[in-house]
Design a protein around this nucleic acid. Structure first.
Lengths: 220, 220
DNA sequence: TTGTAAAGTGAGTAATCACTCGCTTTTTTC
DNA sequence: GAAAAAAGCGAGTGATTACTCACTTTACAA
């Protein structure tokens, strides 16, 4: 699968899969690169057109406004970020002991999210940046999280709390710590210190151990 | 101490304390508000002038360029973020058992940073946003961190590792987990879910317990 | 009080902005 | 293969941009 096919597939997530023209893909690639490097507001449509090798009018043929172009990039990220939780059988699998422990659940989650961030870093950068300034993006995110992630996550936490594997704190606190630890690792790894030579397998394992000990039942 | 005096003091950090004119303070206040709400690139100097109740020319009387204005806001944040580590006697105090444990050290740190973030949230938002797009800011940050924070932090970690309080992971991993946990909590608290009604004392204590258990010596 | 430097002003400037529109070229449909 | 639709083009639009500059007002030292 080529880079272009991969991008095409990701960006079409949700849409009826119409074929995208060559130039439309070029526009998206150029926009993603420039938005992630200079920021959305600081990137002009003429720059995007130049980098994409396309007339400026062509951009507005495909996207009514510059903001539409941003949303076309950001929306698929939104759904993919929480993708693991969207699978219909996801919570089921957890309860039916596909992952015998919270630890294995976390391990699968962190590995999965690691690959995702590694593959789509520029889009994720744009998403994180613009989240702060566009209330609709934040609202979409909030909606998806509340609707598709929070409830399932809460049930998983409760499940392993009852099994005695993790501590009896409020579920939202446990969820916060889990997400914070994973996201904190990924942001450090890919945004804060990307140039350091990481031993990813070791670091992921340390992170999992840290999280599991932090969440383990306290024994006196 | 009024809000204005407080702002004045913070923004003058480092400079020889020249008196700032009324209008200069107004400009800074307006710029901080707008930059944090709309972003640096999306805010025009004319908007800032209007909000500050000042002619546009007055902005450029005090700051040569719009970017100079940004740097005047962001630079003091940089030093204040790491302020606790800048104190000359800081590491000394830790070793001489002012904080008898890593836990107490962390507790003091998190409480201190909590107050700082709460007080200067808009400036911190601007700082975090623009860090991504201005290499000089990132370089300044890297420099201060490497020069003034990392070494002291590393010594503190080693100290408590030798005392057997915390686990014998590589110090940079322990530092990463500590910072990640604290920053993750503060970002969740003030940026991701600021509208939730937090019981801050409880949440801070849970966070400390999570961190300390995550970092504790594993006992078989 | 007067002289001077700093602070403040706002109309003006060239460049750039997101976006439009009449047109040509390419692709799809029957 | 002709007609229709979609994609692509680029000069042109009015609005806005960061910044300048000649000028006026204010602050303060001698």
């Amino acid at each position: 699968m080529t880079e272009q096919e991969l991008l095409r597939e990701l960006l079409q997530a949700g849409d009826e899969q119409e074929k995208m023209s060559e130039k439309k893909v070029k526009i998206l690639e150029a926009a993603i690169e420039m938005f992630s490097e200079k920021g959305y507001a600081a990137t002009s449509t003429s720059e995007i057109a130049r980098k994409a090798g396309v007339a400026e009018g062509t951009i507005f043929r495909h996207y009514k406004t510059k903001k539409d172009l941003l949303m076309a990039i950001v929306t698929p990220v939104l759904t993919r970020v929480v993708a693991p939780f969207l699978a219909r059988d996801f919570a089921q699998k957890v309860f039916e002991d596909d992952y015998q422990s919270y630890e294995n659940f976390i391990r699968a989650l962190i590995r999965n999210r690691f690959d995702f961030v590694k593959k789509h870093l520029p889009m994720i950068k744009i998403f994180l940046q613009e989240l702060a300034f566009h209330p609709e993006i934040k609202e979409q995110y909030r909606h998806i999280f509340v609707e598709h992630v929070y409830d399932k996550f809460r049930k998983i936490v409760s499940h392993f709390q009852q099994k005695g594997e993790i501590i009896e704190l409020p579920p939202e606190t446990v969820i916060r710590m889990t997400i914070t630890t994973i996201v904190g690792y990924l942001i450090t790894r890919f945004l804060v210190l990307p140039e350091r030579d990481w031993d990813d397998d070791v670091e992921i394992e340390h992170t999992i151990q840290f999280l599991m000990h932090g969440l383990s039942r306290r024994k006196e």
